[in-house]
Structure formats: C-alpha cells, structure tokens
C-alpha cells in the first residue's frame, strides 16, 4: 500500500505493507534519526510525534500514518539545536544513540508543561514524563541537568 503523510513538513508517499512497523518504514525511507533498540515499546528510542503526540514508532503499524503529520527530531531544527547545546554541555549524550528520541520527547514535554502553565521546572514530573526513554550510558542525571538548564534559559 502507499501511505501519504507529512513528514517534517514535507508531503511524502511511502510504500509499505499493512503489517509493517512504522519505525522500519521510516528508517528505510532514510529517516535514520529514528533509532530502534528494543522493538517492544520499552525504550523510547524510536519516538516520533504523530499529529503532535509522542508515539513509539516500533509499536505502531505504518498504516496508521496515513494522512498524519509526523515529526522526527530532524523536523524540529531550531528547538533541537538549542536543546542539543544544553545536552552537549553536560556531555549527557554519551553514545548518543538514545539522544534523538530523548530530545524529541523532551521537547514535547516542554511544550506540554508550558501549555499546562508550569513555571518552575518540576524534576519529578519530568522524570515521569520521560520515563519511557531509557538510556544505558548516562545514568540520566546529566540529561535531567541539561533539561533544567534548558528550561531555565527559556524562562529568562
């Protein structure tokens, strides 16, 4: 079947079979920023935004993307670059393999927290929001420091 959807602000058509997993279809189409580490919905590395909401692309049928707007970290150039600088400052990307999914999820979180009217960075809530994004290298502390600094820089 052919899917028509919008990926990173570009209308695209993707060939796939109805049983295909979205993550595989995206990677095959060149969206290498979508990483896959578990394939069972447990690690969050394959996170994308679908109509603005974060979903694990390894756990959803590609057919679901029909007519949807999909965003990967590459589609959020400006915010991603800004956040990346904070992550890099902490060295919180160690191997970096989890970073694209983490950064995308973090940006979704910041947007949602702002919409809720959160003023001060609530680390416990952030840990909860990001709990589905595993990282085996960093111990998470650096990621959380980076996010706090990023959040505070936006407040200024």
């Amino acid at each position: 079947m052919t899917l028509s959807c919008t990926i990173n602000n570009k209308a695209v058509r993707l060939e796939c079979s109805p049983g295909d997993v979205l993550a595989d279809v995206l990677r095959a189409a060149g969206y290498k920023e979508v990483k896959k580490a578990c394939g069972t919905g447990n690690c969050g590395l394959c996170t994308i935004l679908m109509d603005g909401l974060p979903v694990a692309s390894c756990s959803i049928f590609a057919a679901r993307a029909q007519g949807k707007t999909i965003t990967t970290i590459q589609g959020l150039k400006k915010e991603a670059t800004e956040l990346a600088a904070f992550i890099a400052a902490e060295g919180a990307e160690q191997c970096g393999y989890c970073s694209p999914g983490f950064a995308l999820m973090a940006l979704a979180m910041v947007k949602e927290f702002r919409a809720r009217g959160m003023q001060n960075f609530d680390e416990a809530e952030a840990r909860h929001y990001l709990a589905g994004n595993l990282c085996r290298c960093s111990g998470y502390q650096g990621q959380m420091r980076a996010l706090k600094n990023y959040w505070e820089s936006r407040n200024e």
Binding site: L53, P54, A56, I60, M105, G132
Partner: peptide
C-alpha cells in the same frame, strides 16, 4: 495507568 510503559506507548 502511569505505570504502563512510557507515554509514547500510552498514547497508542
């Protein structure tokens, strides 16, 4: 429900 995997799964 917040214990079910991550938000990216709970959205699905």
């Amino acid at each position: 429900l917040r214990g079910i995997a991550g938000i990216q799964i709970r959205t699905i």
